[in-house]
């Protein structure tokens, strides 16, 4: 197997000291490959969000190593880390986090322009990315003129634009109704099937089931992993 896009090796995160110390993550090992979607499940306070912020290089772990796209994050300066994040990672949040004063295409082009791309080239890439989430026709609309599901699809386009390889999604369906949530998951799944890697944090098993692997966290530890192995449900035989 090729080297993973993301590798968390023995990652631990502790807050506070003495009697108030909290072990948010304890010895977590996790790999995400190209074309793989990994769901992280667990109760509130289990460490899901901490894991996502560490995977995204936003917070450095107390111990252990994070290797993103072949680079050891502990060895990068803050500036190098910011550049790597900008070029490799895309975040998708529960509340979309689009800039209201910018159109859909401007929102998607924004991270590329921040990275020094010329406006015209960035817009072209953004238009392509919006096409992949079937929103090319809404490119010039402002977020307020888009439905929640459409806004989240813009956020997915923004997360993958410019060849960024790893999507980190924090409860991306949390603010959407059941049907719209599924449309968004279908888009996320499709981006991953085309070669991106993804981490999907969710408390909803029905949504986690769209992933190739489901990792369960409790008290900062991985307690369970369910991997999709093409298990043949008896239904398949009946439907054949």
């Amino acid at each position: 197997m090729t080297s993973p896009l993301l590798h968390l090796d023995g990652v631990a995160m502790h807050y506070g000291t003495g009697s108030t110390a909290v072990n948010a993550l304890v010895g977590v090992d996790l790999q995400v490959h190209h074309g793989e979607l990994v769901a992280i499940m667990g109760a509130s306070g289990s460490g899901k969000s901490t894991l996502l912020t560490i995977a995204g290089g936003l917070v450095r772990p107390t111990s252990g190593e994070v290797i993103l796209a072949g680079q050891w994050l502990s060895q990068l300066s803050a500036g190098q880390l910011a550049t790597l994040r900008r070029r490799t990672l895309g975040f998708v949040f529960q509340d979309f986090n689009l800039v209201p004063a910018l159109t859909a295409i401007e929102n998607v082009a924004l991270p590329l322009e921040l990275d020094g791309w010329k406006t015209k080239k960035a817009r072209r890439a953004a238009r392509d990315a919006l096409g992949t989430v079937e929103l090319a026709e809404q490119a010039d609309r402002y977020p307020d003129d888009l439905s929640g599901g459409q806004q989240q699809r813009v956020a997915i386009a923004r997360a993958v634009v410019g060849g960024r390889a790893l999507i980190l999604a924090d409860e991306p369906t949390g603010a959407l109704d059941s049907h719209t949530g599924e449309v968004v998951l279908r888009m996320l799944r499709s981006r991953v099937d085309q070669g991106a890697g993804g981490i999907l944090v969710t408390h909803d098993a029905r949504h986690a089931a769209w992933a190739d692997r489901i990792v369960f966290l409790r008290d900062g530890r991985v307690v369970d992993q369910a991997e999709y192995a093409g298990v043949e449900h008896t239904l398949r035989a009946h439907r054949a």
């Binding site: 279908r186 799944r189 098993a205 029905r206 986690a208 089931a209 769209w210 992933a211 489901i214 369960f216 307690v223 369970d224 992993q225 369910a226 991997e227 999709y228 192995a229 093409g230 298990v231 043949e232 449900h233 239904l235 398949r236 439907r239």
Partner: peptide, 20 residues
């Protein structure tokens, strides 16, 4: 519980693939 949850999640993944 843990053994069952892993198996149940796999079944859920399989059903979800059928839906996908």
């Amino acid at each position: 519980i843990q053994t069952q949850r892993t198996a149940t999640l796999r079944a859920l993944q399989d059903l979800t693939r059928m839906k996908m």
